[in-house]
Write a protein that binds this DNA or RNA. Sequence first.
DNA 1: AAAGTGATTGTCT
DNA 2: GACAATCACTTTC
Length: 207
Amino acid sequence: MTTLTEFLTARPTAAIAAALLGKRLTLQTAAGPLSTWITETEAYLGVKDAGAHAYQNHQTPRNQVLWQAAGTIYVYQMRTWYLLNIVTQAAGTPECVLIRAGEPITGQTQMQQNRPVPLARLTDGPGKLMQAFGLRKELNGQRLNDGPLQLDLQACQRVQEIGQTPRIGINNKGSWSTAPLRYYVIGNPWVSKIARSTIDQEHHGWT
DNA sequence: AAAGTGATTGTCT
DNA sequence: GACAATCACTTTC
């Protein structure tokens, strides 16, 4: 049995980001559980990564929770949206994985109340996922699996094929702009910026 | 289908 | 005052 801490520390953060695909992410609410299969992630490699908030160990009030232990939730605001990250590696090593999208499993009705759009556009982006969950910054600094937000390492889909591209929105950061640190489930409809023609209607990219 | 633009708001220098 | 780990809408092919 792999513990959450082992899962989030025993290998490089890029490998953790890939391993998170297909895992179940659930938010417990008064209206019941809102859960998704993770379909898209990005790795942020801390002090050496020019695209990361923790680049060169630069600490600010916004990003300070990145230096906490693996499993700490890092939420920050991007314009009018909120983005969810999971801190990886030991305390003091400010790396993390951005959860960019997920396939709805349960709580679809509730999620569509939080974000009134068609199912196909409900959770196919990092800001959209957080809006569907009805979350803002309240979970920042809290611990995953120690509150309403839970990652289930047992329940998971198996990914047919993992796609890899540069991270979205990381511009003018030299080789870090092109580093292939974004991972996604090829064929899944709930992935940001994908061509409809590549969607696997039958299995959504799972085996 | 892809590329471009504007909205909008907290954060940091 | 500049800018951002986004999104939705418009334009163009």
